[in-house]
Simulated assay, not measured.
Amino acid sequence: MATKKQQPVILITNDDGITAPGIKNLVEAVKGLGKVVVVAPDKPQSGMGHAITIGHPLRMTKMDIFDGVEAWQTSGTPVDCVKLAVDKVLHRKPDICLSGINHGANHSINVIYSGTMSAAMEASIESIPSIGFSLLDYNIEADFTAARFYVHKIVSTLLKQKMDKHMLLNVNIPSLEMELIKGIKVCKQAYAKYEEDFEERKDPQGKKYYWLTGKFVNFDKGKDTDVWALANNYVSVVPVQFDLTNYTLKTQLEKKNLFK
């Protein structure tokens, strides 16, 4: 007698907090593709990068906020959420981990600072295929219609394939109506950064404090980057890896034998 194929387990997390509209839309986008379990921070954790909680207790509370979906909020970082999900909630590795949908861009250098992408990266480190999703709209009332469509398209396609256990994708979606998005571009991370400045201010007591300001500068003029794709109305998909080794420089240093 043939057995019914087991549903894939889909772990969902984010860095904007469990009540953010983005994670609700991510759950809705993939609900029919497998058994969805949510483990997400109890408050916004944007810009946390790959931080983990050390020296403080971590707490988890079961939540009933997604219809028919098991959900937990934690006091930890996005990376803590992935660790707790695997060890204490699922008691196994999920088939895929999805992080987002982030409110705001995570293209180019943002991948280094992003809590959204760090959660996905943690899953990849743990041999769980993972994807971070971001919508280029910070508005709490952002329209996620196109984002839901492309999330479903990407995840459903990948679940039908044999995925590399370390697969890690950074997906950014333009804040546009569906008919204005031209499709999906697989591209590279642009060389871009923030030209930053710390603006000196004074609080009501007259004490100095500093507020981070600056502007985004793109140094990469190629047409194969995430920044270009998004500026030209494409969904950008950048394959990312946690191995930060510069292999070209490694070879050069070995040839020169500088440190003999």
Rank of each mutant, 00 (worst) to 15 (best):
Q205T: 11
F198P: 04
I128H: 05
T3R: 05
K24I: 09
A229L: 09
V79K: 10
S156V: 09
E177Q: 15
Q6F: 00
M1P: 14
V186K: 12
G100S: 11
K88Y: 09
T77E: 11
G22M: 01
T248K: 03
N170V: 04
A142F: 03
S124A: 15
T157D: 14
Y247C: 07
R59Y: 14
I54H: 12
L244N: 15
K202F: 05
L90H: 09
D143C: 00
P204H: 02
G49F: 08
M163I: 10
C81P: 05
N232D: 06
S118K: 05
H50P: 10
V36F: 02
V186A: 10
N110D: 13
S46I: 15
M117T: 11
G100F: 03
K31A: 14
H50F: 11
D67K: 15
G34Q: 11
K5T: 14
Q161G: 10
N25H: 13
I154L: 07
A146Y: 01
S114Q: 06
K221F: 07
L212A: 15
K93G: 04
I10Q: 07
M117W: 10
D224P: 02
M117V: 13
P21Y: 01
P239M: 02
V217S: 01
V39Y: 04
I23W: 08
T53A: 11
H152Y: 10
R201G: 06
T74S: 15
V89S: 09
P78Q: 05
S108P: 06
E195F: 12
D203W: 11
V237I: 15
G115W: 01
A119I: 14
R92T: 07
V171C: 07
L90E: 13
L180D: 13
M167F: 03
S118Y: 04
T145S: 13
A192K: 06
V69G: 01
A40S: 15
D164L: 11
S124Q: 10
V38G: 04
E70V: 14
M121H: 02
P21W: 01
K160L: 10
T248Q: 03
S114T: 08
I128G: 06
G47C: 02
L176P: 08
L90T: 09
V27A: 14
A142H: 05
T225L: 07
A29N: 05
S134P: 02
D80Y: 06
Y209P: 12
V69T: 12
K182H: 15
K62P: 08
V27W: 09
L84T: 12
A142P: 04
C187Q: 03
E254I: 12
F242C: 12
F242D: 12
M48W: 10
L58Y: 03
